[in-house]
């Protein structure tokens, strides 16, 4: 096994995801409904309340980064379902018999899921503009924001592969997947500033990778405040490296 084999497998996994998307985009559209409702209904209504200190931003603008990230995380976390399905079929066995390393399979699948998640975000992006969200019109910032989305989704796809290796059936996986996403979303700065939370929850928010991703994307797309960007990106990278390693180790178990 060489680095070249591993890289080739990763690229092949990304290509696979893009080809699947080309044939069937239904999932991407149906998954866009929920985040659009968050923006169109929740965002619009809560804008009228004006009870949340958003630093002068309209509330719908304030929550757009969080909603974008939540929608991509949904894609990643349920990516584990694909892995559970592939475990039930023979695909994983077959990938294990390929020359690339097992970690290349895990990282490759995670990155592929990240790509799928970014496509998901691309659908919501124009809808947000139609709803009146004002993005900073800087192509470099926007590209950087999508890179952050990609990194955080890849990490959560690895979380999902890790969960899939523990919960080997679809039903168990569904249960845990559902139980994971909303608490993460609520225990982050996606909908309100951390300072508003009870102290205990603030600690949770500080170790929640979503908080850093939301902060980075909000800075890049909406507020233009990039003072925390370096810390945010560093936190996301640490999360990715750790979870890729954990998922690669646990992946062995998935096939036995």
């Amino acid at each position: 096994m060489t680095a070249e084999d591993s890289l080739r497998e990763m690229l092949a996994m990304i290509e696979l995801e893009l080809r699947r998307l080309r044939h069937d985009r239904t999932e991407i559209y149906t998954r866009a409904i929920q985040p659009i409702l968050w923006l169109a209904v929740f965002g619009t209504v809560m804008s009228e309340v004006r009870g949340i200190p958003t630093g002068g931003l309209p509330y719908i603008d304030y929550i757009t980064p969080g909603v974008l990230i939540q929608s991509t995380i949904f894609v990643s976390v349920f990516y584990g379902l694909t892995i559970v399905w592939e475990r039930e079929t023979g695909i994983l066995k077959r990938l294990l018999v390929a020359p690339a390393s097992r970690s290349a399979t895990v990282v490759g699948r995670s990155i592929a899921s990240g790509v799928r998640a970014v496509v998901q975000a691309l659908i919501i992006f124009p809808v947000a503009i139609l709803l009146g969200v004002k993005f900073i019109p800087n192509p470099i910032y926007i590209t950087a924001a999508f890179l952050v989305l990609f990194l955080i989704s890849g990490g959560f796809a690895a979380v999902s592969i890790f969960v899939a290796s523990l919960m080997k059936t679809r039903e168990r996986f569904m249960g845990l997947g559902q139980a994971l996403i909303m608490p993460l979303f609520f225990a982050s700065n996606a909908l309100y500033p951390i300072e508003m939370m009870p102290p205990a929850l603030q600690y949770v928010a500080l170790v929640n990778p979503l908080t850093y991703a939301v902060d980075a994307v909000r800075g890049l797309l909406i507020s233009g405040d990039l003072s925390g960007l370096a810390v945010d990106v560093a936190a996301i990278l640490v999360f990715d490296v750790v979870i890729f390693a954990v998922a690669s180790v646990s992946f062995r178990k998935i096939i036995e």
């Binding site: 696979l16 080809r19 699947r20 044939h23 069937d24 039930e88 079929t89 023979g90 695909i91 066995k93 077959r94």
Partner: peptide, 11 residues
């Protein structure tokens, strides 16, 4: 070739 299906059905 494993016993179970080992190709992707949606491509």
């Amino acid at each position: 070739v494993p016993q179970e299906t080992s190709v992707w059905l949606d491509i």
